[in-house]
Amino acid sequence: MARNRDPFTQALSSLRDRIQSGALSGGRPVIVQDEAQRLRLSTTPVREALAHLSGEGLVERAASGGYVTLRLDATTARERYAMRGEYIRMALELNRAALGPLRPPAPAFDPAAPGPAVGRLFSMIVCSAGNQVLWSGFERISGQLARLGRLEPFLFDDVEAEALALQEAYVSAAAETFIEATRRFHARRISAAAALAALAFAERDEKTEAQPGRRGTNGFLA
Results as ranks from 00 to 15, higher is better:
163 A>W: 04
61 R>H: 10
173 A>P: 08
21 S>C: 11
198 A>W: 06
71 R>C: 03
136 S>E: 14
90 M>K: 14
207 K>Q: 14
128 S>A: 15
94 L>Q: 13
48 E>T: 12
164 L>W: 03
46 V>W: 00
74 A>T: 08
179 I>T: 15
154 F>W: 12
128 S>M: 12
129 A>L: 03
147 R>D: 00
195 A>G: 04
119 G>L: 00
77 A>Y: 06
202 A>I: 07
23 A>L: 06
69 T>G: 02
51 A>D: 12
63 A>D: 10
114 P>G: 01
137 G>M: 02
132 Q>C: 12
35 E>P: 07
58 L>K: 10
17 D>K: 02
108 A>I: 02
204 R>E: 09
50 L>W: 04
33 Q>N: 11
175 A>I: 09
163 A>D: 05
21 S>F: 09
193 A>P: 08
186 H>P: 03
17 D>C: 00
58 L>Q: 07
79 E>G: 15
61 R>C: 01
183 R>K: 11
57 G>M: 11
47 R>V: 11
74 A>D: 13
103 R>I: 09
207 K>W: 13
179 I>W: 11
112 A>S: 00
156 F>Q: 05
84 R>C: 14
45 P>A: 06
193 A>M: 02
114 P>V: 05
115 G>P: 03
29 P>I: 00
196 L>H: 08
115 G>F: 01
222 A>H: 10
150 R>M: 01
109 F>N: 01
141 I>L: 03
27 G>D: 01
60 E>F: 13
6 D>K: 03
47 R>M: 09
133 V>N: 10
